[in-house]
Computed example of a mutant assay.
Amino acid sequence: MGDDHPSKYVKLSKDQALPAEDIKPGELNQPIDVPQLRVRKCCECGQALPESFEPPADEPWTTGICGCAEDTESCWTGLFCPCVLFGRNIEKLKEDTPWTTPCVCHAIFVEGGMALAVATAAFNGIDPNTSFLICEGLLFSWWMCGIYTGLVRQSLQKKYHLKNSPCDPCMVHCCMHWCALCQEHREMKGRLSDDAAVPMTMVNPPPVQEMGAGRDHQHSTPSASNDGNHTTLEMQAL
């Protein structure tokens, strides 16, 4: 069998063989530059963006930092229970986070620090050493709260492409904490409100008619001679 069908492969000699290339360690693992893949990507999801894409411009806040009276409910909640209002804001901003967790954190650093300062002043009196410790503890807790709540405000601005109002988010919460909480609540309430009424029109279909062989045919004859195919629809606006 081997003599009838000779092999088509030709064995090369050492002189005819191609010289082996020296491959350095790691040379085959180098990345390859593909011009078609050099596109802009979204910083949030990593998807490729078209060449004509332009990021949306920053929008102003719908309400001002001092417009707390525009929403009475959030104004009173932020004044007497700021921890609850802060928890509701985070729950609307991050759906996977319950409002109780940020509420407890806010209550420990802010309301807890104030309550501790009042209790220390009431039971031990106010002296230079005690006043220094109270102020130091309050400043530290307020600084921590300003950073934490400022990061939340920054996430809100990034999500809705809002401008800094009126300055850096952390500085806003350090200087005007309660006003900032109310403003953030009003902003999300206006953008995520489910109470907006959408005008709709309800169309009631005509009643079901049954066709008979004798009497129904006689009743249907006069109506057909009036206007032909005429259907009455009842429309009711909501």
Rank of each mutant, 00 (worst) to 15 (best):
G212I: 08
S220A: 13
G125N: 01
T130W: 03
I108W: 05
E73L: 11
A121Q: 07
F123G: 03
I134T: 06
G228R: 11
G64T: 03
Q209P: 01
S7L: 04
K8Y: 07
G26P: 00
M200T: 15
A17D: 06
L28E: 07
G26D: 01
A48P: 08
T120Q: 11
H217Y: 14
F86Y: 15
A115Y: 03
N129S: 10
M200Q: 15
I108M: 12
N124G: 03
A57Q: 08
L12R: 13
G26Q: 00
I90D: 00
H106Y: 10
A224C: 14
A122N: 08
Q154S: 09
S223K: 12
E210M: 12
G146M: 10
V39P: 02
M114G: 11
S131N: 09
I108K: 07
M211E: 15
A213G: 12
L49P: 04
L79D: 00
E44K: 15
K163E: 15
E59F: 03
D195W: 07
N129C: 05
P199G: 05
T62S: 12
Q209A: 12
D216I: 07
C105S: 05
N204H: 13
M211A: 14
K11E: 08
N129Y: 08
F140H: 10
L133A: 11
T100Q: 08
W99Q: 10
G26F: 01
I90W: 02
E54V: 12
S220K: 14
M144K: 07
A196P: 06
P207R: 09
K159M: 11
G78Y: 03
G150M: 03
S193F: 06
L238N: 14
M114N: 07
M1V: 06
Q209K: 14
G214T: 15
E111N: 03
D127S: 09
D168V: 05
D33F: 10
H185P: 01
D58F: 07
R38P: 00
D4M: 03
T97H: 06
T221H: 13
V34H: 07
E187D: 07
R153A: 04
A224E: 15
H219N: 14
H173D: 02
V172P: 00
E21R: 04
T72N: 05
S193M: 10
N29V: 05
I23E: 01
D22I: 04
M202T: 15
L37Q: 09
W61C: 04
S13D: 12
K159Q: 15
S220G: 09
K41F: 09
I90V: 15
L238Y: 11
C68A: 13
G112N: 01
S131D: 02
G113Y: 00
C83L: 03
V203N: 03
H177Y: 10
L156K: 05
G64Y: 05
A115I: 01
K92S: 14
